[in-house]
Design a protein around this nucleic acid. Structure first.
Lengths: 343, 343
DNA sequence: GTATACAATGAATACGTATACACAGTGCTG
DNA sequence: CAGCACTGTGTATACGTATTCATTGTATAC
């Protein structure tokens, strides 16, 4: 096998013109059933597959979606990517993956103009990145997944972070906690912001104040979680519960707590966000607000396909509910009904 | 912006022929420096990027590599993918990602013939899959990463699993353990096999026998780890150390051990394989044989590029050393020097 | 001063497919 | 039997680029 056979080669073999072969390939109804059968047989015998490049050049569609992500070693991102792969494959689309941390900005800029893909999925939009602006300016259909940009005229599908955070806050308050720690990310994006604000709102609505000394903001989720835990738990009067905006951060906090001998949930309750697969592991057994990964991805890809088919349709911004999943990190310890700090 | 400008559009603007623009783009030396400068200016003003599809069709190169993987929610695979992305991007190549679990076999077969990519990286080759056979038959340059196939005439870059496992075994024996558990995968591949055989060899060389009742083989790494731990640790005389062929499996075992109140390392030592990032987390603090991910990926992609440039070069099979990384799961407990079982 | 090498460019073509257009054959209507 | 709609097929072209070939102009050698 030196060169893959072309449709012209097979046309000759089947005794028809290349156009007819092409018509068979595209299921064009204007072809005689007998001819179609004969051609199909020849194609099959030759194990023929149309050249995707030539086809894409002609039709303008590549059946490929570009995905921009950050590091997939973060468990949630891995789950997101996995789901994106599953859904794209189920609708016959390929995926080109770019990591916005590795890839130089020029590469990304080039890619946006190359028409190499039919559309983009951005999963890590941040306000300080030009990526979403560039993507939209390129004219290629684009959907923001998981992380949105407020007020941007672009299809977006996100979890309802405010609501999820609010539910987590209310849950803690209703369990009797009044001295609560909050660990957020120094990240610029509405995701962490809403996971912060929603939580505060729940406490405020319940008349619970959050001490400034109980709020820590960190940069690197897992690594900085250690320090955050140490800071909060080594206080003279440590909080009885800690809520944090990411599972990965919660794992770091748990690690940090263990390192200084603090027990979860006996000494302190812990809540994460994302409900990653790891949260269910015994070693963590973490109560967490679930992001509906499958729904987000499925909805987002549906939206992207609609926009590809109909570029001028109105923008949709969809927010999906995030249910709280309760596990052992907020187990029913004695002071849950009669919180320690009131004793 | 309705349609991206073509090289012909810009040629007209610059007052030259399309051929000259193309020569500038490909750094063809046969072009007058002044002309080149003028064309470059026009290209820059128009924010032009060549159409990747047309270029690929003409040159036969897509500057894209196809990567076949399994689920990236497995931490080691996520790290592998992340590294593949980093290295590919550093040499200016794009990545199309397929998941051999999601994607139907016909899709994969099609892809192999479409010439959509310049080469393939297979990271999850198994003996019972036809993937590597199909890839090689397609004539597209292919490199096996991480998991190899014995005797296959194909470039391969893997960790030296036998040696890594041997070192883990020797380490346990030298620490005084004589009653040792082994948890393997029911997986068909030389990776888990060598991680099994190398370990056994170390024990045999040291005159330590491994009880059949101390060997468990499981299917799903994390989930089945629980059961394996329960089985081994609830024996009347449980092993004093457990070695297992994957970190993910080790985490599952640790989870299972904790669930029944067994302490690592006080009750039992635990060793994993891969040295994933999670292994370093306090919650696991897992001794593990490291897979040199960066070296594997870098070497593999170098190899792939060489083969793309020179398809007929001899096949290389490269095996890289796997150092043992010692952590708290094999801490220096009392019975390390004087093993419990001899008491 | 003519012949020749060489540099720089334009014209033309090919990559493999999809599709607009032209055309032959067939069945139907008047 | 002429005219017409319709079906099935072939011919020709276009997608945007890279590259071969031909052409022009200029410099060098005899």
């Amino acid at each position: 096998m030196t060169r893959p056979p072309t449709s012209r080669d097979l046309a000759r073999l089947a005794g028809v013109s290349q156009a007819t072969v092409s018509r068979v390939l595209t299921n064009n109804p204007k072809v005689n059933p007998e001819t179609r059968a004969r051609v199909l047989q020849v194609l099959k015998d030759a194990n023929y597959t149309p050249n995707a490049l030539a086809r894409a050049m002609k039709t303008g569609r590549t059946d490929t979606i570009g995905v921009f992500m950050t590091r997939v070693t973060s468990p949630f991102h891995a789950e997101l990517l996995d789901e994106i792969g599953r859904v794209l494959s189920s609708v016959g689309l390929h995926m080109i993956l770019w990591n916005i941390e590795h890839d130089p900005e020029e590469t990304i800029a080039d890619v946006l103009h190359q028409r190499l893909v039919d559309g983009f999925l951005l999963t890590s939009a941040t306000y300080d990145s030009k990526l979403h602006t560039m993507a939209l300016a390129s004219g290629t259909p684009t959907v923001l997944l998981h992380r949105g940009i407020d007020g941007l005229d672009c299809d977006q599908v996100v979890g309802d972070n405010w609501q999820g955070a609010y539910d987590a806050g209310r849950y803690l308050v209703e369990a009797g906690h009044t001295d609560i720690g909050l660990v957020t990310l120094t990240h610029t994006g509405n995701t962490s912001r809403d996971r912060d604000l929603g939580f505060r709102a729940a406490l405020t609505d319940a008349g619970v104040k959050i001490k400034p000394s109980n709020v820590v903001s960190v940069g690197v989720p897992h690594a900085d979680g250690h320090a955050a835990a140490r800071k909060l738990l080594s206080k003279r009067k440590p909080p009885t519960a800690i809520y944090t905006v990411t599972d990965l951060l919660a794992f770091g906090i748990l690690d940090g707590a263990r390192a200084i001998g603090a027990n979860v949930p006996d000494d302190v309750w812990l809540i994460g966000y994302d409900n990653t697969e790891l949260a269910a592991w015994e070693s963590f057994d973490l109560t967490s607000v679930e992001q509906p990964v499958h729904a987000i991805v499925q909805t987002g890809i549906d939206l992207l396909r609609k926009r590809i088919a109909e570029p001028d349709r109105p923008t949709e911004i969809i927010s999906l509910p995030c249910p709280l999943v309760i596990r052992g990190s907020t187990a029913n310890t004695p002071w849950a009904s009669a919180p320690r700090r009131t004793s």
